[in-house]
Design a binder for these strands. Structure first.
Length: 943
RNA sequence: GCAGGGGUGGCAGAGCCUGGCCAAAUGCGACGGGCUUAGGACCCGUUCUCUUUAGUGGGUGCGAGAGUUCAAAUCUCUCCCCCUGCACCA
């Protein structure tokens, strides 16, 4: 049994002593490999391992390929979550405390977590320990946390560059808001971590026929304005008259507060629902006068508490009118106005119209029960979907346009003409509650944005994107789509940890915006630390020179008070390291971090520093289930390593799925790797029982396999297809060694070489075991410092591999033959006396090749000399059916094939327990001899 | 809704870009056998279906349907279904 913990400890200590990962510029080519730094609000679990292990494996591989590789790591603490944890700890939030306990965090530590800086520090240390335990080849001297003052200086510089380029803009934006906390609310700030979904609706102004006051109706579907038959209000609600700008509106009293966060408004007075119901209103688009009626479904707190009624296209409106009819109300004469038709694609343009099809079955419904409500909601969804998909406008100025097109056009028209205003609502089904207990509403705030929608900027990105390598390649589409889609991005926040926003001193920089070009900082972070550079010395001139090469070293030194040699060193470090880069993360970062990463690089840095390659790895599930705190299946990384071994976890997570797809972590997977590791371990420790000898067929075969394996694996590693590479390197190798030994292979030289290379090639993924085996094989160097094996193309011998394949196939065939012949009565028991393996005569291969090239039997016959034409024709005619797609085979001489079989003879004898004769067709007396095919010997089982 | 990615054997999951060597890798499961006091682990074999008292053979088959082709899991089109993201959240 392998003692993983012991091996891991020993080699980690050895690497540390050797300072194996602390790298500085030298004359080798550089490679900077970075992974998105983790957010320090929870310990790492085995799911997090995948990204970092992928990065580490790749870094270790590149190192063996001769690059000077830097793999640095930092930690992210900017933003709100840490702050909100601190607040929750202060309030002794039990839910959170239970979560923390999953990770074995002691009570006294939890108590201290009311201090946000303590949280950041604690988890930074915790994660560092975890990563070391996982064996990552990180240069820890460069570690920093995103809230450190020196880093903040870098971020400030980054923002000054964005401002200079004109990419920073001020504007308004709707956010989730708590009127109690007076702050913006995100997912982390709500009870049960609900994300407040902000939806835009259109508030259409219907003027009161008899006054200058407007009814303001909130709707998702402004294009149905042409089908409005009346307005609905809630007859039991209170209404107010408000003033926005110089216009006055009726809205429900419940809507006043939410609206006041979106508009500057004044409350002028109250008005009863009763009073409103006496009124009628003017449709701003058609000029029609419509009545105001009570709608049973109208919620006073939703939107403005007033809706427009479009019974032909809205089931709720339809049912409400039917209800009123029953209750004796006088309802509009034109009860249904169809304004959208469904275009049925299958049947061409047979406009079977919309005689309210989805409404028909709602006839009998009153809307009084829960069940009715559900039914109507269903119908609403159905109609929305149908019409959005196939709807064509029947009327209005956008007649003939599709419904979604018309919706946008009408909305824009009405808003620009002043007939409507955008109104935002929280779109969640259930109210979203802030942790303070208040309901979250929408507020429109004035703030700074980074405008990723800037046309020139986008063009540069669009042009550059094809040059950047993206792994896996399936994500190219997503990257393109994301880069087109990203637009205005809010870039300051009123609370949280991080760098102060330079142009709004009370605010901080939004937490993803501070982490875009930060990998540059790794090049200098350790120098700033060792030279004890103070934050205030890091003036813009410093970064201008060090990062961009702008300015002069003397003036930079004068401006900052940093000595010229240090500045020089920083500059050299940046220009050395920031050329070949590979950036790694999970798929969740494509639409945010990766976009900001790319855009900011292109905006600020010179072209040679632009991203070269990004690698996105899939997620990890546990025993087929999503890992989550609620399922209780989150395994903290440190616990996992202790239990399963770092190498095993690394191997299972990286090799059981392709890079881009999710991987399933299972204990079975661990067990199986452990078993195979033990096989390797035992083989290596018992190598002294073998000795050197001259090369046999199996030796050539194993050499051939080894070298084609190296070639294939190298190609896969270059494409970051870790799974493909390690199936080849690891699983296939073990099978091959078994096969080799079984078939009589026993050559020490060959085995040793095979194992040496195998052990080196598993170094990137299972570094500890690799070092251990490497030493057991008698080597005194570090495996991680060795060269990745190079394939010796001369040793790749397709003939030898083909012969081995023939031998394998023949073994199967013999089995079948024995089982079939043993059914004969006279052979009921026992084993056959003898098995003859008869290899096809050379002329057959010749004839076959001729047929493959001529594709015509008669031509092939003429091409072959010295064989009776009748026999040739009989032989070749069996291929006539497939003549057009015969595969070319290697024309291996019968004598060569025979040699291979001769060597495997012992194996066959032991397998079948009988005499085995190997012969070539011509020399065989068996009447089955003529059945031999070029790549398929004939078999004669003699009983 | 919009955008991106998918649908493969009992399950998981390769293959698809670059059509034929694909009844389709690999792992798990199941079944039979070995080892063992027994279990686990491990080893060997079988695992769509039909045929064959001698193998290298046939059928069906990769979400559904249609097409291109001598040939389609792989290319094209249509449809159905699933997953992910849609922003102030790291």
């Amino acid at each position: 049994m392998i003692d993983y913990a012991e091996i891991e400890k020993r080699w980690q200590d050895a690497w540390e002593k050797e300072m194996a990962f602390e790298v500085e510029p030298n004359d080798k080519k550089s490679y900077l490999v970075t992974a998105a730094f983790p957010y320090v609000n929870m310990p790492l679990h085995i799911g997090h391992l995948r990204t970092y292990a992928t990065t580490d494996t790749y870094a270790r591989y590149l190192r063996m390929r001769g690059f000077n590789v830097l793999f640095p790591m930092g930690f992210h603490a900017s933003g709100i979550p840490i702050l909100s944890i601190a607040k929750r700890i202060e309030k002794s939030d039990q839910e959170l405390i239970d979560e923390l306990k999953i990770f074995d965090i002691p009570d006294e530590v939890i108590k201290k977590m009311s201090d946000p800086l303590f949280i950041a520090e604690y988890f930074t240390e915790e994660m560092t320990r975890s990563m070391k335990a996982a064996g990552f080849s990180i240069d820890w001297r460069r570690k920093f946390v995103s809230i450190e003052p020196t880093f903040s200086k870098f971020v400030e510089w980054q923002f000054s560059k964005l401002k200079e380029k004109g990419y920073l803009e001020k504007g308004v934006h709707p956010v989730g808001w708590c009127t109690n906390d007076m702050s913006a609310i995100g997912q982390h700030d709500t009870i049960h971590d609900v994300h407040p979904e902000i939806e835009e609706m259109t508030g259409i102004k219907f003027k009161d026929k008899d006054s200058e006051i407007f009814f303001i109706c909130t709707t998702y579907r402004p294009e149905t304005i042409y089908g409005v038959t009346n307005l609905f209000i809630n007859k039991d609600a209170e209404y107010s008259i408000i003033e926005i700008g110089d216009e006055k509106f009726y809205v429900s009293t419940a809507a006043v507060t939410p609206l006041s966060n979106q508009f500057k408004l004044k409350v002028l007075g109250a008005i009863s629902a009763e009073e409103l119901l006496k009124k009628s209103a003017i449709n701003p688009e058609t000029g029609e006068v419509v009545p105001v009626l009570p709608g049973f479904f109208v919620k006073e707190s939703f939107g403005t508490g007033i809706v427009m009624s479009v019974p032909a296209h809205a089931p709720f409106d339809y049912v409400a009118l039917e209800k009123l009819k029953l209750e004796g109300y006088s309802i509009p004469s034109a009860q249904y106005k169809t304004v959208i038709k469904i275009q049925n694609q299958d049947k061409g343009d047979s406009s079977h119209g919309v005689d309210i099809p989805a409404l028909a079955h709602l006839e009998a419904i009153t809307g009084n029960s829960e069940k009715d409500y559900k039914l109507i909601e269903e119908a609403t969804k159905k109609i929305y979907r149908e019409e959005a998909h196939h709807g064509i406008m029947l009327t209005g100025k956008y007649e003939g346009k599709t419904e979604p097109e018309a919706r946008e056009l009408i909305k824009t028209d009405m808003i620009s003409s002043g007939a409507a205003i955008p109104i935002y609502i929280i779109g969640n089904e259930e109210p979203v509650i802030c942790r303070c207990g208040n309901e979250v509403i929408v507020k429109i705030v004035d703030q700074w944005f980074i405008n990723y929608g800037n046309k020139e900027w986008k063009n540069v990105v669009r042009e550059f994107l094809p040059e950047m390598k993206i792994y896996p390649h399936q994500l190219k589409g997503a990257f393109n789509a994301a880069s087109e889609w990203i637009g205005l991005r809010a870039t300051e926040r009123s609370q949280g940890l991080g760098t102060k926003f330079p142009y709004e001193p009370d605010h901080i920089i939004e937490s993803l915006s501070d982490s875009t070009i930060y990998p540059v900082f790794y090049a200098i972070s350790h120098i700033l630390k060792s030279e004890k550079i103070k934050p205030e010395q890091l003036k813009p001139e410093f970064f201008d020179f060090v990062v961009l090469g702008d300015g002069k070293i003397e003036s930079t030194s004068a401006a900052t008070g940093i000595d010229a040699a240090t500045i020089r060193k920083c500059r050299d470090s940046v220009s050395y390291w920031y050329v070949n880069t590979s950036r790694h993360s999970g798929p969740d970062l494509i639409y945010n971090h990766y976009m900001m990463y790319i855009y900011n690089h292109l905006a600020i840095l010179p072209k040679e520093m632009w991203p070269k390659q990004v690698v996105v790895n899939g997620m990890v599930s546990y025993e087929g289930q999503k890992m989550s705190k609620s399922l209780g299946n989150v395994i903290p990384l440190l616990q996992g390593i202790k239990k399963y071994g770092a190498d095993n976890i690394r191997f299972v997570e990286l090799s059981s799925a392709d890079i881009g797809t999710d991987t399933n972590f299972t204990e079975d997977g661990i067990k199986s790797v452990d078993a195979k590791n033990n096989i390797l371990y035992e083989l290596v420790s018992s190598l002294d029982q073998y000795e050197a000898s001259s090369l046999s067929h199996m030796d050539y075969w194993l050499y051939s396999k080894l070298n084609s394996k190296i070639k294939k694996a190298t190609e896969s590693m270059d494409q970051i297809s870790l799974r493909e590479a390690y199936v080849e390197i690891y699983y296939n190798s073990i099978t091959e060694i078994k096969n080799y030994l079984e078939k009589g292979g026993k050559n020490l030289i060959v085995l040793k070489e095979f194992l040496d290379d195998l052990v080196l090639m598993i170094q990137p993924i299972m570094p500890h075991l690799s070092e251990e085996l490497w030493h057991m094989l008698g080597n005194n160097t570090f495996a991680l410092k060795e060269k990745w094996p190079e394939p010796d193309m001369k040793m790749i011998n397709q003939e030898v591999e083909k012969i081995e394949e023939i031998i394998d196939d023949t073994e199967d065939d013999i089995k079948t033959a024995i089982s079939l012949t043993s059914k004969t009565s006279k052979n009921e028991a026992g084993k056959p006396n003898c098995i003859r393996i008869i290899i096809a005569a050379d002329w057959k291969r010749e004839a076959y090749e001729a047929l493959v090239s001529t594709k015509k039997i008669s031509d092939a016959i003429n091409k072959v000399n010295g064989v009776d034409k009748a026999i040739l024709s009989e032989f070749l005619s069996r291929f006539s059916k497939k003549i057009n797609y015969l595969e070319k085979e290697n024309a291996i001489p019968a004598s060569k094939i025979k040699e291979g079989f001769e060597e495997a003879k012992e194996y066959f004898i032991s397998k079948f327990g009988t005499e085995v004769v190997i012969e070539i067709e011509e020399e065989s007396k068996s009447d089955r001899a003529k059945r031999a095919l070029p790549m398929k010997p004939s078999i004669d089982v003699i009983w």
